[in-house]
Design a protein around this nucleic acid. Structure first.
Length: 218
DNA sequence: GGAAAGATGCCCT
DNA sequence: GGGCATCTTTCCC
């Protein structure tokens, strides 16, 4: 399948699925490793894909911003306790679909929230799903990204390995620079809201809250 | 059974 | 940058 990137039309590298081991490291490592990877979704409507440009790490039972804080386990959060590579998908504000990928071993409820991507292919399909939103808002923000890709709530709890619809690929691309800052919308988490656990590809136009304060870079 | 909050997005100024 | 739609999940009666 040819890659046709809007920003980098010269990219023509072989695709391979990311290995299971990628998700078995700590959630902060996995978050940064996922930047630049390709998230592809195939549905009966067609296929679409983005290069992941922005993520957030949710640190399990000790992170007040994490749904599994304090070991909380409900029907919704149960997938977070499964092994690395499990999908954790839930509805926010009653209408926005949030896509997360669980990290670590079984029983360690950490996950990476996929917040934004750069369109690679399936542009027409994504624009149709997003009601012709402009390019800079097509796949930016966790709710918008899920809508563009056609992420389904029914996939929560399923593994991305051997998944029928969703695949994460590595085409050899590595972000030239990664920036990090505070996570978005977690002010209720008190001191844990201050952690710089949001990561994005430096200078990418496909990042939300671009004006937010940058803390450090890697 | 009911109330409150929420890992947002969009439109307005 | 501020207001608000919108409805599921969770928790507490």
């Amino acid at each position: 399948m040819p890659i046709q990137s809007i920003l980098d039309p010269l990219a023509e590298l072989p695709l391979r699925c990311v290995p299971r081991e990628l998700f078995l490291h700590n959630v902060w490592q996995v978050s940064q490793d996922l930047l630049g990877k390709i998230l592809a979704v195939q549905t009966p409507e067609g296929s679409a894909a983005v290069r992941i440009t922005e993520v957030e790490a949710y640190g399990g039972i000790t992170d007040r911003a994490c749904h599994a804080y304090g070991g909380k386990r409900t029907a919704r959060t149960a997938p977070m306790y499964q092994s690395g590579g499990t999908l954790y998908i839930y509805l926010c504000y009653g209408l926005h679909v949030m896509l997360n990928i669980v990290t670590g071993e079984i029983g360690d409820p950490c996950a990476v929230l996929i917040r934004a991507g750069e369109p690679l292919w399936g542009l027409d399909l994504m624009q149709k799903r997003r009601k012709n939103a402009p390019l800079h808002r097509l796949t930016v923000g966790p709710g918008s990204l899920s809508q563009a890709l056609g992420i389904s709530l029914e996939w929560t709890g399923q593994s991305i390995f051997g998944h029928l619809h969703l695949t994460v690929y590595d085409d050899g691309y590595h972000p030239p620079q990664i920036e990090q800052g505070k996570r978005i919308g977690v002010d209720y988490a008190g001191p844990d809201a201050e952690h710089p656990w949001r990561y994005w590809i430096a200078a990418s136009p496909f990042v939300s809250h671009i004006s937010r304060k940058k803390l450090t870079f890697v």
